[in-house]
Design a protein around this nucleic acid. Structure first.
Length: 415
RNA sequence: CGGGGCGUGGUGUAACGGCUAACAUGCAUGACUUGGGAUCAUGUGACUCCGGGUUCGAAUCCCGGCGCCCCGACCA
């Protein structure tokens, strides 16, 4: 992509109403645009990043045998009445609206009800379970207080996976698989070292649920970490009994602020009972379906990555999710020789399948460097008249202070 | 939802109750320049969030609303 064609604009100042680091940088670098509190649009750079994260999640979800679907955002009230969650007193994050004929509908804040009801058409026999399906869907939550940029929004994309198992053993096995898949996902997007499987409240269905908590000052949870065992406990459930269960000692725990980037939990028959989802086993006996739900917020993951790696110059993206891998910068001469050279390198890289953002704009070098630092692509490659003389380019990783000179051929082999 | 703070060109800021609302940046045009947001010139751009009130006079004071940020509560 040529930067002169890229729909975006960088800016020196962040709007004063953005205080969080992730929103300040993402807005300054032209990744997102704020519509209102807790509601953000994604511009090309931001969407590319978000989609990279989504693709990592998708691959790992497919790898454990779940299948992608898309449910609706508009939701039928009757399913929610059956589970007793339509009432605002029970679930107060609802956005509700009405059809022309006065029928009430909800804007989905989660999809257990809808999917469980849907599954009644597809699960009837033991041959129909287990079923594992997931989606990336916009959730609407009427948060009383949106905050921290894209970390806590009223409208956001969520990956939600739901499992429908024949019995507890089958459920538990899949639950463990998802846990491992989540660990892999957070490793792949670069957060592995600072993300902890965290024991949290299991609600009424099981003793614990598991949260995936990433250490960051931008987080709103407090967790207690046993670094040796690489597990953590959410403050909400920290007590002697829990410590005993997990075999950790209070003295070994350190307190950290963290953000919940994912969570998984056992729903047991909470929804299948209420919505009468069951199957008939080999003996012809009706059995309840055991459910689980497993969420990750790709936008929140993106914000967390921004918070975690950014420095004073701007964003820093891990290669796996960067909107482009290479930022090619031309320091142009009057005759256009450098531009032609850069153009050739751009097409060579593109032909190799490398995602390049080529800064072909007629700007002074300082401005291009500042933008490159702000946008934060992993590799910066500079071509100039001086370097051209030796058929070389300057290569600098965003995370490095210093740059290397490589010949063009060396670079093409290296990248 | 409780508490606190703040609303002025696209963005960041300034302006004692008193002159045509100022400065920077951005944007446009031109000159000059090309390894870290350089310089110069000329332009462009604001019913000072909305509605009332006080006053000879309101961006400024008062009341109400709306919006935004922060702390807390909440977060299946």
């Amino acid at each position: 992509m040529k930067q002169s064609h890229l729909f975006t604009k960088t800016r020196k100042d962040a709007p004063k109403d953005e205080v969080s680091k992730n929103a300040q940088l993402l807005i300054r670098a032209g990744f997102i645009h704020k519509e209102m509190a807790g509601v953000y649009s994604f511009l090309p750079l931001g969407l590319r990043t978000l989609n990279k994260i989504i693709e990592v999640i998708r691959q790992e979800m497919n790898a454990i045998g779940s299948q992608e679907i898309t449910l609706t955002a508009l939701q039928d009230k009757k399913n929610w009445e059956k589970t007793g969650r339509w009432d605002d007193a029970v679930l107060d994050v609802w956005f509700k609206t009405k059809l022309k004929n006065e029928t009430e509908v909800g804007l989905g804040s989660t999809h257990e009800e809808e999917l469980t009801a849907l599954m009644k058409d597809y699960i009837a026999s033991y041959r129909d379970v287990p079923r594992y399906v997931y989606q990336f869907q916009t959730k609407f939550r009427n948060e009383t207080r949106a905050k921290s940029g894209i970390m806590r929004c009223r409208e956001f994309v969520m990956k939600d996976l739901y499992s429908f198992s024949a019995d507890t053993a089958q459920h538990d096995a899949f639950y463990e698989k998802v846990k491992q898949a989540y660990i892999k996902i957070f490793e792949r997007v670069g957060l592995g070292a600072v993300t902890y499987v965290t024991f949290a409240s299991g609600g009424s269905f099981s003793k614990y649920s598991h949260e995936f908590q990433t250490i960051t000052d931008a987080g709103e949870d407090l967790i207690y970490i046993d670094e040796k065992k690489k597990i953590a406990v959410n403050k909400e459930v920290l007590n002697d009994e829990v410590l005993k269960d997990l075999g950790v000692r209070r003295e070994d725990l350190i307190e950290k602020k963290a953000v919940e980037v994912g969570n998984i939990f056992n729903l047991s028959t909470r929804f299948s009972d209420a919505l009468e989802l069951s199957y008939v086993d080999q003996k012809g006996v009706k059995q309840p379906v055991i459910m689980g739900s497993y969420g990750i917020g790709p936008g929140r993951v993106m914000g967390t990555i921004a918070e975690t790696f950014a420095d004073d110059k701007g964003l820093v993206w891990p290669e796996s999710i960067a909107p482009f891998k290479v930022h090619l910068i031309g320091i142009f001469d009057k005759e256009g020789k450098v531009a032609a050279y850069a153009e050739q390198l751009y097409s060579d890289l593109t032909a190799k399948g490398i995602e390049v953002l080529y800064d072909d704009r007629d700007l002074r070098p300082g401005e291009k460097f500042a933008d490159a630092d702000l946008i934060g692509l992993p590799l910066r490659v500079v071509v100039s008249e001086k370097l051209m003389a030796t058929d070389s380019v300057e290569v600098k990783a965003r995370t490095n202070e210093t740059a290397d000179i490589k010949t063009r051929t060396e670079f093409l082999n290296y990248v």
